[in-house]
Amino acid sequence: MARLAIDDAAWGNRWRQRSTAEKALLALGLLVLAVTSREVVTGAAVLVLAVGCALVGARVPWRTYLRVVLAPLSFVVLGAASVAVTVGARPDGALLALGPVAVTDGTLTTAGQVLARALAATSAMALLATTTPVSDLLTGMRRLRVPEVVVDVAEVMYRFVFLLLDTVATVREAQTARLGYATGPAARRSLGMLGSAVLRQAWTRAQRLDAGLAGRGGSGPLRTLPALRPVSVPFVAVTCTGLVALTAASVVLA
């Protein structure tokens, strides 16, 4: 079946059996710190901690982790480049000017801050994404009283994503073999047929699943019992201490 590298890491890392609460506390704590702190030093500390926890602690394959951190690169670079310039009347003290476009100390600093913040925040988010499967996160949301229907729909979605990715790969290969992507117009026609074939497959799969669940208690609320993963007190204590220390340090620095 279709696989996604981040998802594979999430199901197979050394922190897989840790409770979702622990991992969420650590990753989201680092994420909040990364986003709220203005200090580049704090950002760097978050980056180091997140990378260390992911690669050394959870043994996430470094290629996968790197791919996550670099995935938004094109957006971040384009966005930061845009923030680094000012357009209009030439401002005083421009470091660089080309026609109406200029770069100043201020714009450059903002761009640098945004870059640092995005990098640190992405590394923290990546820690959560590569150590915790979506299934576990949905279970966590259930505990947080997110409405049952919403979590049920999301759970089915997660399962179906992989089924449909398989369909996409197969349909696409079958179309390619029959020269469906040999020319531009053919490619567009093929993609349209691909989309509709996937939607149709989604629909029939859902109907068949409904019939399939009839004998298991029906497709009413999809209540299940997740694995028991007790919260580790030392892990939480270390995480809280670390987060508080980092916060204090960044407040003092500011």
Binding site: V149, Y158, R159, L165, V168, V198, Q207
Partner: peptide, 21 residues
């Protein structure tokens, strides 16, 4: 419609897959 849980899940997965093309 009780089976809507599954149909909506399929619809969401379809949107995800479409956006990953």
């Amino acid at each position: 419609r009780p089976d809507a849980r599954l149909l909506l899940g399929a619809a969401g997965a379809f949107t995800f897959v479409l956006s990953a093309l």
